[in-house]
């Protein structure tokens, strides 16, 4: 199921945060939303999942416009802040979200054990989240997002504040999910992570400045570093 954005605009008060963004994410790809902080990555994700209504333009999953209940079931979302219940244990958080997706009880428990293992939190499953470290919270948040085996996964800065070793492990997970056919839209401001993705969407001040395969994006730069594309964008904006 492709995700198509067509001429999407969004303003907060007087500030236009998303300006005329159009692109299509093909099913089964990892698409990376890249941009400096404040460029509109989070807003774009929230528009795509239907948490925010667009001022104009359309967002379609296949032929269906968002928000839609049937699509919501197939969608996983990991917000930028951890959005966990601090007074519940890791297991409690997972059981709650699993219940909201109406996972049958037996498969739910097996699946909870599986994702806890994936993010290496099995030993801490009974601990209350308020006693978790920042990295543990991030991992639990990821576990919740993939718990119901979504077809499309939205990840808002999933590796921010995570150490390099774990970051590599998490990216290996994403690749495994991709291999199972999951579409992943991931935002990041870590330019190195772009090489893990199939496509890169470069956002700058709410505008989509580049959208292409990562290989071709890298070819466009002289140094082979994605940052150069942003420097070019900032220079051309300064001139105009």
């Amino acid at each position: 199921m492709d995700i198509q954005l067509s001429r999407v605009n969004k303003r907060f008060g007087d500030t236009a945060v998303i300006k005329d963004v159009s692109f299509t994410v093909a099913a089964g790809e990892i698409c990376c939303l890249l941009g400096p902080s404040g460029s509109g990555k989070t807003t774009l994700i929230r528009l795509m999942i239907g948490a925010l209504p667009a001022d104009s333009g359309t967002i379609q999953f296949g032929d269906t416009e968002m928000p839609n209940m049937a699509i919501l079931k197939r969608l996983g979302f990991m917000p930028q802040n951890d959005a966990l219940y601090e007074d519940l244990s890791a297991q409690g958080n997972l059981a709650f979200f699993g219940g909201l997706y109406h996972l049958p009880k037996r498969t739910r428990e097996a699946r909870i054990a599986e994702v806890l293992d994936m993010v290496e939190l099995t030993d801490h499953k009974r601990k209350l989240v308020k006693d978790f470290s920042g990295g543990m919270k991030k991992r639990l948040s990821l576990a919740i997002a993939i718990l119901h085996e979504p077809d499309i996964l939205f990840l808002d800065e999933p590796t921010a504040g995570i150490d390099p070793v774990l970051r590599r492990k998490i990216w290996a997970q994403f690749q495994a999910l991709k291999a199972q056919g999951t579409t992943i839209i991931v935002s990041t401001h870590v330019m190195d992570e772009v090489v893990e993705c199939d496509k890169g969407a470069l956002l700058y001040n709410g505008r989509l400045i580049e959208y292409d395969t990562v290989d071709r994006l890298l070819d466009k730069t002289a140094s082979g570093r994605i940052e150069d594309l942003f420097f070019a964008a900032s220079e051309s904006e300064a001139r105009s």
């Binding site: 929230r46 948490a51 209940m69 969608l75 979302f77 917000p79 951890d82 959005a83 997706y101 109406h102």
Partner: peptide
């Protein structure tokens, strides 16, 4: 404020 409501609303509830 913690964002759990937004997350909750992204489930089919």
């Amino acid at each position: 404020s913690r964002g759990t409501l937004e997350r909750l609303m992204m489930t089919p509830i």
